[in-house]
Structures are given as C-alpha cells and as structure tokens.
C-alpha cells in the first residue's frame, strides 16, 4: 500500500528527503506503535539535533513525528505514533505500515533543540509527548549532561517507559513517573522551585498540559528563555468568517469562504505556497501582510510579531477586516 502511495508523487515537504524502508514495527501500548526506518542499502543516516522531527508522507498527505533517538550517528530513525481516529489520516496510515514498506521522509528538522549552555535539562512529558523528550533524555545521557524526566501517563498506558528506565543506568539523573494529577502537581511545584541556575525546561504533551506547566513555571519566576515547548496538537479551530484577500503583486482578489483556509484558497487559485504542518505550528507558510488586520490563530508567531500584523500563517489564520492585502 505504501508503494502505491508513493506513486501519487512526492509531497513538497519531503522533496529532497530520503526514501527509507520500515525495518521494525512494535506495539508500545493499545494505541501507540513504534516504527523504525532505515536506508534500504543499509547506509548511515544523517545525524539530527535532539528533539527533531521527521516529516513522513502517507498517500498524498504528510505528517510530522518526533524522532525518539539521541540523533548521534543514527543507523535508523524511530518514531512512535498515537493512533488518532478523527485525525487527518496520517496516524492511521502509520499504524498500517509493516516491515519492508518504503516511505518517503524528509531529512530531520530541528524545532525543539536543547540549549547548549544548559547544565541541567528538566524534561516534562505527557502521553505521546514522551517521544521528543526521550530523544532529549537519550542525548543528555550520552553527553553526560544531567537531565531529569517527569513523565505523566495513564497507569499501564505509558509508551517507552522501559526505554526511559533503562537510561537511568546510562547517565539519566532521574525519572519520575506520575499517573495522577495530584502527584504530578506536587512533583512539578517541587522541581520548579529547586532548580540550579543552569536549568532549562522542555515540555511536550497536549496543549492544555503544556500551558499548565509553562504558566506555573512563569509564576515561579522562570523567564521565557528557559522554557521550551513542542506543540503537536493544535487546538481545534472554528471555521471563521469569510473574507477577501487582495494579492497585490498578482493583481487578483480571492474570496476565502468560512471553513476554508487561506492556504487552501490560494492553492486552488494556482498559487504555490511553501507549507508543512498546516496547523499553525511550523511557520513554513508565512505570508507578508500589506494592509488589514489578520486574525492570528497560529502557535508560531510571537505575541510581538502578531501585534505587528505584518506576517500571517495562511494555514490557520484569517482576517479581522473584510479584506486583507497580501504581498503575493
């Protein structure tokens, strides 16, 4: 099935990437499967920065998944995928992969890197958010940098628990598992108030979880530069109001109906806009706004950049004004 999927053409997000073969599929939990890819000829793969992700093509779509290895001189790439029944179809396709299938993937992309000057990494994961955190923990253990992992998961449903425990004998400072909210809150407060100055915090999990962790860290005086997060679940967005865009350089006006994204509208009109996640996370589909106030719904731009109203992410953001003028 993957072979036929490839015949549909290479998606721009994985163009110039790698064609890899599935070498192992293993069940982590009821809903999470780990998939290992390697070069079909057995060659080495490009190294990557801990916390990097891989864009994997399925059919005509692509999805990004965190790599779980340390990234240093890998001979294989491993991802773990949570099956999302009502998602875009990527996780279902990943769960159907079997050994020997070939998939087109991007080169690893880094968007959640460790800070090189940190003397301690405080790594916080919830659920499938363990994947990039495991990558960080492995890299820290390999490099001899102190790292503590706090891992929140449902009892008996935590992926990679054994992998994380095994790291304890290979240099990981500590692993704290929490299976209920109360114990996690206690651990989090204790950790946020007792860290030496070289500590940086990294968090990955569902949005509400990450917001809770980051808000509490700020309340305890953590500055923004110490806080690092990897968003994988963009909040569900409403369909929004219709608006019009005026493409100044092309001299065309397009109507963006409710429920259709600006990116889709532009693509239908034959415009090729670089894009990847289509969820307002990666920042690939950035457009310059010449006039009008965009309704920013992305997670990529900073508050300051949003307030400037000169850039917008066309995959999720819309318009507060009836018309936007774009530099296109």
């Amino acid at each position: 099935m993957t072979v036929t999927a490839l015949q549909t053409g290479i998606h721009p997000a994985v163009d110039g990437g790698l064609l890899l073969e599935v070498t192992n599929v293993s069940i982590q939990t009821d809903s999470i499967v780990s998939i290992t890819f390697a070069d079909p000829s057995g060659g080495p793969l490009p190294s990557y920065v801990p916390g990097s992700h891989l864009v994997v093509q399925y059919g005509t779509g692509v999805n990004a998944y965190s790599l779980t290895g340390s990234g240093s001189a890998p001979s294989e790439y491993a991802i773990s995928v949570l099956q999302v029944e009502d998602g875009g179809g990527g996780s279902v396709a990943m769960h159907r992969l079997s050994v020997g299938d070939r998939v087109q993937v991007s080169r690893p992309r880094s968007a959640f890197a460790p800070v090189s000057t940190a003397t301690h990494h405080l790594l916080v994961a919830a659920g499938i958010g363990i994947t990039p955190i495991l990558s960080h923990a492995r890299a820290a253990a390999e490099r001899g940098i102190p790292a503590s992992v706090i891992y929140v998961h449902r009892r008996g449903a935590g992926a990679h628990v054994a992998d994380a425990s095994e790291l304890l004998s290979r240099g990981l400072t500590e692993l704290i598992e929490c299976t209920d909210r109360g114990s996690f809150q206690q651990v989090l407060t204790e950790k946020l108030t007792t860290q030496e100055l070289g500590t940086h915090l990294y968090v990955c999990g569902p949005d509400p979880f990450m917001n809770t962790v980051l808000d509490q860290a700020r309340e305890h005086g953590w500055s923004q530069a110490r806080l690092h997060s990897e968003a994988f679940g963009a909040a569900e967005l409403d369909e929004g109001e219709p608006f019009t865009v005026n493409l100044v350089r092309s001299g065309i006006r397009l109507d963006v109906p409710a429920g259709v994204s600006l990116l889709e509208t532009l693509e239908k009109a034959g415009k090729s806009i670089p894009n990847m996640c289509r969820k307002g996370i990666c920042g690939e589909c950035s457009l310059s706004v010449l006039r009008g106030t965009p309704q920013h719904r992305d997670l990529y731009l900073s508050d300051q950049e949003k307030a400037a109203n000169t850039t917008m992410m066309c995959c999720v953001s819309r318009s507060d004004d009836p018309e936007l003028e774009l530099d296109l």
Binding site: E196, L197, G221
Partner: peptide
Amino acid sequence: ALGRSHVGVR
C-alpha cells in the same frame, strides 16, 4: 550568591 540561588532569581 548565585550558586545558592535557584531558577526564578533575578
């Protein structure tokens, strides 16, 4: 003094 302090200090 900084060595005795924890993250959150200014």
